[in-house]
């Protein structure tokens, strides 16, 4: 059951990335290029996704537990620490260079563009290195997102 629904949710997420244009790095980079070939479409992606999640979470969390799990596991940390800011800054730098964030990069993988085939393995290595570095620099922090 869990793998079947995992697959379906991933598929919907991926189709959303494609339909919205997020899976096209040129569109992402043009969104980030305020003073050039600006394409504001991505603001609509974020708006649609956040509004849906904002309403949906409030409906879902009324239930005592998830349908295929025992309990909700929602990040409880609220402090803004150095790892959060430094990590997000590094991510923003990479996003601005390549035009890919993790979801679109993975969805774009089967399309086989040369840039994607270099980006994704590098990202996986980076995720592993970053997880090790994060675990070393703070032992109490829980990571979820």
């Amino acid at each position: 059951m869990r793998p079947v629904f995992g697959f379906i949710t991933g598929l919907i997420f991926g189709l959303g990335l494609i339909v919205s244009g997020m899976a096209d790095p040129a569109k992402v980079l043009n969104f980030l290029d305020l003073f050039g070939t600006w394409d504001p479409s991505l603001a609509f992606v974020m708006g649609g996704a956040m509004t849906t999640a904002f309403i949906g979470y409030r409906l879902v969390l009324r239930r005592p537990s998830p349908l295929l799990g025992t309990e909700y596991d929602i990040p409880a940390t609220s402090g803004i620490d150095r790892n959060l800011i430094a990590g997000s800054a590094l991510f923003g730098l990479g996003w601005g260079i390549g035009g890919f964030c993790p979801g679109p990069a993975l969805t774009a993988l089967p399309l086989g563009a040369p840039g994607t085939l270099l980006f994704v393995p590098s990202m996986l290595i980076g995720l592993w290195l970053g997880a090790r570095a994060g675990a070393l620099s703070s032992s109490s922090r829980k990571t979820h997102a």
Binding site: F91, P102, M123, I125, G126, G130
Partner: peptide, 11 residues
């Protein structure tokens, strides 16, 4: 870019 996105999102 891939390395930065990976390390940054993990950290």
């Amino acid at each position: 870019a891939g390395l930065l996105v990976g390390v940054g999102t993990a950290l």
